[in-house]
Each structure stands twice: as C-alpha cells, then as structure tokens.
Simulated scan of single mutants.
Amino acid sequence: MSLWNELLAPKAQSLNTTQLAVGFVAPITDQGLIALDGEESAHFLHGQLTNDVEHLAAGEARLAGYCSPKGRLLASFLMWRNDSTLLLQLPRDIQAAVQKRLSMFVLRAKTKLSDATEQPAHQVVIGLGGGLAEAVLQTWFEPLPARPYGLLLHPLGTLIRLADAFGAPRYQWLMSQEVARTVLPELAERLTVGDAASWQLSCIHAGVPQISKATQEQFVPQMINFELLGGVNFKKGCYPGQEIVARSQYLGKLKRRTTLVTIPDQAAVAGAEVFATADPEQPCGMIVNTAPNGRGGIDALVEMKLAAIEAASVRLGSAEGTALEFHSMPYLLDALDV
C-alpha cells in the first residue's frame, strides 16, 4: 500500500460513523490473501471449510470458516474465484500459520497454496461505502454487483460488494498499482478519505466479525453469527469440527451471539472478557473486533450470552469495569436458543 501512502495518506483521517455514512474511501491494510491453484483446489477446500466451495460461482464471494476438530474457529475467510485460482482473504496476523496448517492436509490433492498478498493484481486494496460510494464507483463499473457478496472481475481489478453498513452498500476493490495511480486521486476528490481504522469501523457496523490471532479457537461459528451471514452450509459434506457445529445448530446447545456495542475505553481489545453485572463471578463473553469510533471510545463486536444481551448490563474486564452501550445489529439475531 505504499502508493496509497504516497497519494492519499496526507488526506486520511479517522472517521466517525456519521462521516462513514455519507461516503468514504479507506485503505484495507490488515488483510492477506492465500491462493490455491490446481484442479482439485475446490474439492480440497470443500472438505476443510464450513461453506460450500465446489459450487462457488465466478461472480460471487462467500464467507467461510476453518475450524479445529472441536468446532472452534481457527480462521474466518472471504473467498472467491479468480480465473482458475481460489483466493482466501484473512487477517495478516494469522495468514502464515493458517496457510501452513491447511498445507499439511493437502496430501495427494492436486492443489498448491501460496501467499498472493503482494501479487500485482492485489497490490492496492481499498474499501468504499456510504451513500455516495455507489455513484462514484459507477464511473468505472457498470453495472455494480446487485447484492452483497456479488463480485466483478474487471480489467481495472476485482470489485466485491460486501455486507451493507449505514443503510448503504460497501465494496472492496483490489487493484494493481498502475490502476491505483489513476483512480485514487479521483476517489479522494469525491469521497472522504479515511484511514485503515475507518474501514474496520465500517466492518463492525456491518456486523461481520473476523477471527484474529487474539480470538482463535474461542468460538464455534454460531457464536459470532456466522451462519446468519451465510458462512456455514449445513447441507455440505464433512469438514473439521462439522459434527460439533451441526450439533450446536440443531440441538440448541449454544445460547450465545455477537452484538454491537460502544465502549468508552480505547484500551478495549479483541480477546478481552466482559462481565454481566447480574453474574459478576465469571465472564459472560469476549470482544471479537474493535475499532476507534472517532468519538473518544471504540465500537466493537462482542460475543456473549443471550441473557446478557437481553439484560444489556455488561462491563469490560470485571463487573465493576467500564459499561458497554448496546446498539441494534444490522440484521436480526434470531430468537432460537442456538
């Protein structure tokens, strides 16, 4: 992202939710890409991930999880096809370890995993959203993806519509440095330029959690609403942890969800525990993702017991810690005891 720094970094600022809702462009700097090449790549991944890979179409992206044998998430991905290559996007802080672990199970499958983060087509990755973003993108793309997780493979790069936030579409645009040099200045003229934390704040308000190093093996997929987001296919074949994930879904053994909160404490980080005042002796949940909210605190996605969400009296670190302010999610947390 050196080109972003050269062209737009002086204009970048940490945006609040009001600014994001109007229209913004921001760098995506914390994500890496794993590429799988080979005729059996889809078949191999289909047996490893929580979602259907074999029927992933060229014009769509999907969320998918990678679980331990105990059904706990080791990683969460955004995945899509690019010609003959399958791509998995995940946080850079776990990419190397996850890529190595997946490679251990390739055995005789005809596929090869590699780090695609710095490939020419992915040298610059930006996020766009808010009310103005759609019209601005139509300068280069027509038509735009009609629904979340639609994808365009275009001469100017890969454009993926992600989950909406603030009542408007969000997009990720992966491009070469050559393309970036042409489009970034115009984007900066027409949209507010945010920093990397601004993009992370938009992801939180879209209600899409992501597993990082601090939260590996802490959650089964349903705890972070992953099946509500389309990240779990319960009709596909086996994968590591599949039995536990299915049991949690159908036998009602899980009574936890992830919700959106504000915490007026910038020290709150992923992996920190939260406590319900009604049950102060043990944690009721854990922070999944955070981002500065531009108002002196952080907004966060926090996994916790459904009873704690309903009571809305939860504090950071202990039952005497900083109080969490609860907000509605952009989608329904269903009423099932899952």
Rank of each mutant, 00 (worst) to 15 (best):
M304A: 04
Y331S: 07
K255E: 03
T262W: 03
R257I: 03
Q218G: 04
S318D: 04
Q249F: 01
Y66A: 03
A300K: 05
A61G: 15
R72K: 15
A291Y: 12
T29V: 13
W199N: 13
W140M: 03
P10V: 09
K112H: 13
G237I: 02
V261D: 04
Y331N: 03
R62N: 11
Y239A: 00
C203Q: 14
V106N: 06
P148Q: 04
G317S: 07
A323D: 05
G32M: 00
L260S: 05
E303S: 15
K110N: 04
R147T: 14
S328A: 15
H43Y: 01
Q222F: 04
P280S: 06
A121F: 05
F141R: 00
Q282S: 14
T50W: 10
V338R: 05
A58P: 03
L306V: 02
H55A: 13
F44M: 06
L56P: 14
N289L: 05
T29Y: 00
A135S: 14
V269F: 00
D93A: 11
A276C: 13
Q249I: 00
W173A: 10
M223S: 09
A57E: 15
S114M: 04
Q123H: 07
G65E: 14
L306S: 06
E39G: 14
E281M: 07
T158M: 02
M329F: 08
E325M: 06
W140K: 01
I94T: 09
V22S: 12
Q89G: 01
L113M: 09
K236D: 10
W140Q: 02
A116K: 02
A116P: 02
I211Y: 11
W173P: 14
L254F: 00
D52P: 13
L152Y: 05
F326C: 03
D115V: 02
V98A: 06
A133N: 08
T17G: 04
G127Y: 06
F234P: 03
N233A: 10
E39H: 12
S176V: 07
